[in-house]
Amino acid sequence: MRMSEFIVREAISASVSAIQKEAVIREMVENLRQAGYFKGNDADDVVKAILKRELLSSTGIGEGVAIPHAKHSSVERLVGTIAICPSGVAFDSVDSEPVFVLVMLISPQERPSEHLRALEGVSRCLRDKSFVVSLRKATSSQQVWDLIANHDRA
């Protein structure tokens, strides 16, 4: 699954100033909420589910990238968003380094294959170190989107 198929364009944030893990996660979920996802208390539930998953093991997989994720019944298909944190976030990553690029995935319950397909898509883009450097330099959500859309087309 290509990233441009599940990243919600309107929820991308290129300049997250928060430097704490929970604050960044909350901001990303709030961006999705403002883009029309999650009703009522669902946004809070999603934050809790993501934080609960992080307690099992950090999704900071090294090289400045994290993939926080959760399953939640409020989404009918897998949705995602991206945050670029220029100051870096302490994320308990596997390499103990701060995280600068976060890709959040929220998938419906009982749809594990979508989640795995999305991870493939994230890997296709972000395993390329020069692509991550470009993302970190992006100063607007439009620039982030263009980088992803162009990479998906290549």
Binding site: I61, S113, L116, L119, E120, V122, S123, R124, L126, R127
Partner: peptide, 12 residues
């Protein structure tokens, strides 16, 4: 490599 494994997409 995590990036390698993430690209597998190995389902049940």
């Amino acid at each position: 490599s995590m990036w390698g494994l993430l690209s597998l997409g190995a389902e049940q």
